[in-house]
Design a protein around this nucleic acid. Structure first.
Lengths: 214, 214
DNA sequence: GGTGTAATTATGCAAGTGTATAATTGAGGC
DNA sequence: GCCTCAATTATACACTTGCATAATTACACC
């Protein structure tokens, strides 16, 4: 008997696009851009490779959209963290802590970031998204700092925001790249202390509640 | 007339291996692992692709050796920075500043780092080199901190070293990824101030002398 | 100056890449 | 139930990749 043609279900455009984007992000996170081939992506999304070119004009465009989706998701997750506290110090502490625990501090998230870097450097559209996202993150941090007493003028607040952002990013990097080198919660504590030292105040450890999506 | 066979010069094994390794590192830095094909590497090194398999058992092994060479070079460059000052505070300041100016803080260096990450995650040998290099760097930083007055016991010094390492790595990352977002020397000043705040002391700005190799 | 031999190049190949195009088939409207 | 048409699959193609192997050639040694 001849191998029969594969069965399939028709889906809405948005669902299929989302599935393909998610599949691409998963693969890049796990193995880098090299393993995110059209065949692997289609396989992970449960379709055949031809469908990619039905919903995206090229694989490159799929990647570009995946990056954009990733940045948007990270931004909104990050903004949501701030809603969980009212006191300025507690809000800042939640902001710092969220970056230093899963799912943000995570090997896969870092793999995603690293996997995109070179493409971001060649593609002007992706570079713009990158700069925009980064600066928005830092602006949010700067606003948190400005809400604290005794943080000086705007120029000083900018410098403080850059420094705190550095602490957050650096510890995120270390914890994501070498998780076994740190005890559970260690980097979170260190990050809160360091940011506190830079700003000249004590930051309370936020609750254990972790960032998650519905 | 038929195209004649390419002329060549015989070279010592070490020179050829070095040339191939350098070529691989350049290409990975510029465009990521995807552009570092055997043909591109051989071209950059001024030889033909077959030679790679004459000096390395596979392209993967060339990449592995390239990573090892990179890590060794970074370690020795880093250690050399410390010889330029005697006073503990000046030594620490030099350590921090060196990481936050070229050629360490540089888009190509970051591209190199990002380009290797996924391969480091799959390859146990590369992962070991990575962990070893990172911990050596941090131990060096911790030793610098321990030489300062009032930095507590070993556990506290460890936490301080992790925090300072975070500042350095994070600012390095931001400056390398988005150089146009910062003024010249800005991150260096911010880094020195932040490390100083974490350690509770003032760090003098080191001389403008930059790290370079002969 | 020949001669051996190891370094280097040239050629070929199977597997994998993204993409174009044609062939099918699921599902809603009548 | 049938028809229509877009969603989906299947197939094919040109190109690139890493690697194996055979053919050359530079250069040390006598």
């Amino acid at each position: 008997m001849a191998e029969e043609r594969r069965k399939f279900r028709r889906e809405g455009e948005e669902r299929r696009r989302d599935a393909l984007i998610s599949a691409a992000l998963e693969l890049i996170a796990e193995g880098g851009p090299g393993v995110a081939t059209v065949r692997a992506i289609a396989d992970r999304a449960g379709v055949t490779p031809g469908l990619i070119r039905h919903y995206f004009s090229s694989k490159e465009e799929l990647t570009r959209e995946a990056y954009r989706a990733l940045m948007e998701r990270m931004s909104s997750d990050n903004a949501a963290v701030l809603d969980r506290a009212a006191d300025p110090r507690a809000r800042l502490a939640a902001f710092v802590a969220a970056a230093l625990r899963p799912p943000v501090m995570d090997a896969a998230r870092m793999g995603l970031w690293a996997g995109f870097i070179h493409q971001v450097r060649r593609d002007a559209a992706m570079a713009a998204v990158h700069a925009e996202t980064y600066l928005a993150y830092r602006d949010r941090l700067q606003a948190l700092i400005a809400a604290l007493p005794g943080t000086g003028d705007a120029a000083r607040q900018r410098a403080l925001a850059i420094a705190c952002n550095g602490v957050i990013d650096g510890l995120w990097l270390e914890g994501s790249a070498l998780p076994e080198a740190f005890a559970a919660g260690e980097l979170e504590r260190i990050g809160l202390d360091a940011v506190g030292a830079i700003l000249g105040l004590d930051l309370p450890a936020p609750s254990e509640q972790t960032e998650d999506r519905p």
